[in-house]
Computed example of a mutant assay.
Amino acid sequence: MADRRRINGPIGSTAPPVYASQPPTRRAKEVSDNVIRKIFLKTGVTPSASGSAYLELENPRAAGPSNTSLKLTCTVHGPRALPRSAPFSPHIILTTHVKYAPFATRQRRGYLRDSSERDLGVHLETALRGAIIADRWPKSGVDIIVTVIEGDQNRDSPEYQKDEGWDMMNVLSGCITVASAAIADAGIDCVDTVSGGMAALVAKDGESQPSIVLDPAVAEYQRVLAACCVAYLPTRDEVTNIWFKGQLPGADMLVYNKMVERSLVACRNANRVVVAALNDTVRQKQSS
């Protein structure tokens, strides 16, 4: 009697299926080190939140159909009244929460926040606190939640160096930009739209001299010596946060100042994207 609960294989030999050859992958574009990557930004992606935004960062040097290297989403909940048991605060209480998705990086992330995600939340809070007019909402709170859907890592590269945290600088600059757009979408008064930018001192190979690169994809370089991430208010010409990591050769302050200046250039370019996205949202609301 045949066993009906078991699926038997074929009696004779079988040949594996042969699929058509893959189409040739397109060549990566030659991009200058002094040009920032293209940014896609859209607000109002989460209707249930007070304000929301979505950001994608393109990696034009990557070959293949999927050439994005950073994907972030941000939701803003509030301002809302604090509980009666909370002490009186003359200004708004800002709470930032940055979390990687489990599949966002090469190494799978846990469901609880680790030390790197808490550091990103602290830097994000410092960057946004200088832009929000906090005394407009006494005894109120606002929650800003940023989810990293895809980190700034080339996970398919065989020469990918061990994760040393350099990609966190690009993630922080993207978090600042997307959070600024989400705050403006929520209607929270700010002195200016804050934007993030990054510059790094990198070496392409072991023989080349280190050079300062604007908005780098750190996975493409063999060695990263230092990196600088800046949060900047372009209209007021003020810096709300600076995060510098690494060691400069000979502790040269001229190199440090040049890295900050290049980061400010990236901030100004990112701010143009934020302003354009907010203008598009206003036009859509007026037309509807």
Rank of each mutant, 00 (worst) to 15 (best):
E150G: 08
V282E: 15
R109I: 08
T96G: 12
V45F: 15
V202H: 00
R108A: 12
G110A: 02
H91C: 14
R6M: 10
S32W: 02
H77M: 03
L254I: 07
V230K: 00
K99S: 12
K42I: 14
S208Y: 04
R6S: 12
P23G: 10
T43G: 10
L94Q: 14
A270F: 01
Q247C: 07
I144A: 07
A131V: 06
V45D: 13
K258F: 05
V142S: 05
H77F: 02
P24Y: 13
I149S: 00
A179Q: 02
N257T: 05
D33E: 13
G196W: 10
R262T: 15
V274C: 14
E238Q: 12
I188A: 09
Y100R: 04
P10F: 09
A104W: 14
G9C: 12
A276R: 10
R4I: 09
I188Y: 06
A49C: 11
Y221K: 02
Q286N: 10
S173D: 09
T46V: 15
M169Q: 14
A104L: 04
F40E: 13
V273E: 15
S50Q: 13
L41A: 08
I144N: 01
L94W: 14
L128K: 05
A49T: 03
S115K: 01
N34T: 08
P83V: 00
S263R: 03
G206N: 06
V76C: 03
L55Y: 04
A270C: 13
W137K: 01
D280M: 04
R106A: 09
K71M: 09
Y111R: 05
I145T: 08
V230G: 00
D192Y: 12
E56S: 08
A186F: 12
V213G: 01
G110Q: 01
P249G: 10
C190E: 12
R272F: 01
Q22E: 12
N279W: 10
C228S: 06
